[in-house]
Amino acid sequence: MPLISTTPMLEKARADKHGIVAFNVHSFDSIFWVLEAAAELRSPVIVQTTVGTVKQLGAKNIVQVVTAASEYYDIPTGLHLDHCTDLEVIKEAIHAGYTSVMIDASMHSFEKNVERTKKVIDLAKSLGVNIEAELGKVGGVEDDIVVNEEDAQKAVPIECKQFVDSTGVPTLAPAIGTAHGIYKGKPNIDFNRIAEIAKIVDVPLVLHGGSAVPDEDVRRCVALGMAKVNVSTELKNAYSEAIRNHFATEPESLDPRAYLQKAKDAAKEIAKSKIRMVDSENKVIPSFV
């Protein structure tokens, strides 16, 4: 199955009150176990890469591998560039075949954010590429974008409506109290703010910082209108910890097939649990196939 735009996928998810998980991948092998997990649960899925991963693996190479995996597993798959501030990298991803891109201008003024987002929309929307933008500032670290806890700012609902009306952006990531990475304590999610935003903004909303958020909190976010849920750190940690445990218990076992299989199995179980969490299991429908 060829890669598809995430716009109709996420619009249907919001209408049906379920979510779609966007999994950050950091290597070519992780693309296949993410798709394998989705295929086993018959779930649409979004493969997501940071700018750092694009620079390491190459946009064209990533598109070719994700396309091959999507065709092999026959699952509706979108490919998203996450948290990009560089218009040239966005152009590179679009030309390579990405079906979704995020322009992150949330560190700028509202007016500058609108201006930069509109530039990407003018470039990408006519091609059927989904565009995601952010309002407010999600705390934590995403590649080289660092937002300290004291600098994190929640999105203002009326500004979200003004932003969508001004730009026509098809998906919006409002900062609502989550953070990138693993939380030191319980995340302080502002559910009332999500409800206010969803009431006046009719595009699918995106939950950043979905790793280690309690399942019941994510489900509540999805029910309120968060159609896309980003997961990265939990996958990366499970994969790495499985390799570390392998060498701690079997230091002489140096066959990559042995320790990479353990890493794959551990991360794949996390992926499947996240798919079930947002209720996208068995959501592959004829219009996507």
Rank of each mutant, 00 (worst) to 15 (best):
I4P: 11
P8S: 03
P8D: 01
K12M: 09
S27K: 06
W33F: 15
R42P: 01
T49D: 04
V51H: 03
T53R: 03
Q56S: 13
N61P: 00
V65W: 04
T77I: 07
L79T: 14
H83G: 09
C84A: 15
T85R: 12
D86Q: 08
L87N: 07
E88M: 07
V89T: 14
V89C: 04
E92N: 14
T99I: 08
I103C: 00
V114L: 13
T117I: 01
I121M: 13
D122K: 08
D122H: 09
D122Q: 11
I131V: 15
V141S: 09
D144G: 10
I145V: 13
C160H: 12
F163H: 05
D165E: 15
D165Y: 14
I182G: 05
D190P: 05
F191A: 12
A195Q: 10
A195F: 01
A198Y: 02
I200W: 02
L205F: 02
H208G: 00
G210T: 00
V213E: 13
E216C: 00
R219D: 03
C221H: 12
A223P: 01
V231I: 14
V231H: 07
S232A: 13
T233N: 08
L235I: 15
A238I: 07
A242T: 04
N245A: 02
H246V: 03
F247D: 01
E250P: 03
E252Y: 06
R257D: 06
L260W: 06
D265N: 15
A267C: 08
E269Y: 03
I270N: 08
R276Y: 11
K283C: 09
I285M: 12
S287A: 12
F288E: 12
